[in-house]
Structures are given as C-alpha cells and as structure tokens.
Design a protein around this nucleic acid. Structure first.
Lengths: 175, 175
DNA sequence: GTTAGATACATCAAATTGATATATGGAGGT
DNA sequence: ACCTCCATATATCAATTTGATGTATCTAAC
C-alpha cells in the first residue's frame, strides 16, 4: 500500500520522502498515516525496483528528490485501474488518485463498487433484522445496547459511503 | 490493541483463540480484523502477564480455553474507562464493550468524544472553505475533482459519526 | 466412503508502527 | 548578536502485525 501512496503522490512531480509524508497528512491524513519506518524503506525498495529515480540535492539538509520512472508510472496506473475493493480502505486511496485514471475505466469501477456496496447494505440490514428479533426475546437485552449500536454504526457507515459515491458519480456525469 | 480485544471478548466468558477470532469477525469484523500471527502470541503474552489463565481441554483438537483473571478484568476496565480517542478507531472498539462500563464514566466519555467530533467537523469545514476558494481560481480545477471528493468524504464521515453518537447517547438517556 | 468445509493451533518472512536520534535552517524575541 | 523553538530532513530499531501456509481433527453431505 505504502508503495502506491508514494507512486501516486509522485505523479504530481518530484518530491522528497518528507514531502510525501507531509502531503499524505494534509490530504488523506484522516484515513491513512505513514511512518518513517515504512516510508524510507519503501522509497529504497522502489528505487531498487526501478520505479523511482533518486536525486541527491546539495541542500545542507541532505534532501533527496524522488521521481517516477516510466515503469513506476505504468505500475501505478495499472494498480489504479484495478477494481475497487473494501480491503483496508484501499478504494479511498485509489479514488483520491482517480483524476489520473482513464474516465471510462473510472466510471466502470466506481459503479461496480457502488453495486457491491448496495449488496453489503442489504446483507447487513438483513443481519440486523435477525439480531433485533433474537434480542427482543431476551430479558437482559439492555446488556447488549452498545454492541448493537456498533452494528448500527456499520450500517450508517455503508449508507454514508453509498450517498457519497452516488454524489461523486452523478456530479461528474453532468460536467 | 489486540490485547484489549482479547480481554474484552473474554468478559463474556471462557473462549479459545479460535472462538475469539470468530467472534471478532462476526461482530466488529467490518472494522477490525485479527490474524493468527498476532492473536496467539497475544494470548501467550497475556497469560504470562497474569491477565489470563489457560486451560487445556482434552478435546481431540487441542483446544485451549482462556479465562480472565481479576488482574485482567481490572486492566481491561481501566483501559475501557480512559477517554475515547480517534486513534485507529479504538473508540469504536471501546464503545462496543461499553455495556461493561460504569454508566457515569460512559456518558461522560461519550459526550467528550462528541464535543471533540464537533470541533473536528468545524475545522474540516473551514479547511474545505479555503480549498474551495483556492480551487475556484484555478483553470484546471477539474484535475482535482477526486482529490476534493475525498475531502468531502472526510466531512461526511465525521457527520455520520456525529449523528450516530448523538443517537446512541440520547436513546440511552431516555431508557 | 470420500469430499468439502469448519474447527483449532502454530509458525514464518516481510511489512509496519511508534519512538528515538541526529542535524540544519529559519523566524522571533531580547 | 544570541538564544530558543519549531520545521525540515533522513535514518534506524525493537516490538508488533500482516498475510500466508502448514498441520490435524471433526462433521455434514452426497
């Protein structure tokens, strides 16, 4: 994941490791954090893998600027075009970089993801029906108030994502 | 974190590592996952630290049942009563176990968290105002459509949490 | 009777966290 | 001119976590 965060951020142009971390914090920092302990090894790995080039500046602070190679750019765009999956909020990171992606693929992936989201909502709704039913028969149902509340959170969360996705798809369509 | 997931799940009674993993998946699985690679070392650590006792069953499957000690119970309740923080969704895990917590502390912590959430919403709203203003002056603002969308996601996310929190606080009040 | 899936624990390399160390540059105050 | 604080910038480390794989048994179905 960190690899693609780096590659994605470098689509904007040359940056240092420190710059990347700062940019992440100021943009998707709410949902993704990167630590130096993963960032610097990742940059090293990416240079060795031919995804990036490293350029030492004669800055007194030993600053190193990283730049995407064509391979790196290709690898990133390949990843970006793959279907959106709920796994570890990767979809949110991909969508953040979606301005780089081919509009047709983009639209397709967003709509597929929305479809999947609707399935999840239906499923979690059904589970909640069942749980509510089971709970109604219990004497000590108050003992599960917060456990059930967290289930409601899950539903609200998906519904929020659904509304958001629908909005960004629709708005983009009319532009 | 995994330590408190284990302790919390064991508040319900004796369980095996496998049971704990299954219970997590079926309850807070949407937001937390645990792997065997962290679960079994954690259980070992907790037994060594006097938080749990291990009981071998003569089950053919080598099943081991873990049970909270008084120390473990105390340590869990101590953690549970500490203020709710956004960090790594720990607040969600705590609230999941909130049925175990003293109602007064519970109410106080939830209200403080809601207060903090309101501050975050105000702040992110202000940031969005600024960014929207800067963006309006750009010629190529379409190039930032999805980046901005992810900011909107952040706001929606906080608003969803706010609505949820208000609901669970209020409903519990009237019961 | 055999195939598939659930139960159950263990282990490993690789990645990540969270913290700490080191050092320079710049802004502001006195 | 001097000092203090904070931002810039990279590096590294122990401890933890991931994601995968290996082993073995039990159960249900066909």
């Amino acid at each position: 994941m960190i690899d693609y965060i780096c590659l994605g951020m470098l689509m904007q142009g040359k940056m240092s490791g420190y710059d990347i971390k700062k940019t992440v914090e100021q943009s998707v920092g709410l949902f993704f954090t990167i630590s130096y302990g993963s960032l610097y090894p990742a940059l090293k790995r990416l240079v060795e893998g031919g995804m990036l080039t490293e350029e030492e500046t004669n800055n007194s602070k030993n600053k190193k600027l990283y730049q995407l190679t064509e391979t790196g750019r290709g690898s990133f765009l390949q990843w970006l075009g793959e279907p959106l999956q709920s796994n570890r909020r990767e979809y949110l990171l991909k969508i953040f970089f979606y301005d780089c992606l081919d509009p047709a693929i983009r639209k397709n992936n967003l709509e597929n993801f929305l479809f999947e989201l609707n399935r999840n909502i239906a499923q979690i709704g059904a589970v909640q029906q069942i749980v509510s039913g089971q709970l109604a028969q219990l004497e000590n149902k108050d003992d599960y108030y917060y456990r059930v509340s967290v289930m409601h959170y899950g539903l609200r969360f998906y519904q929020m994502e659904k509304a958001w996705l629908e909005q960004i798809i629709e708005k983009r369509d009319y532009e």
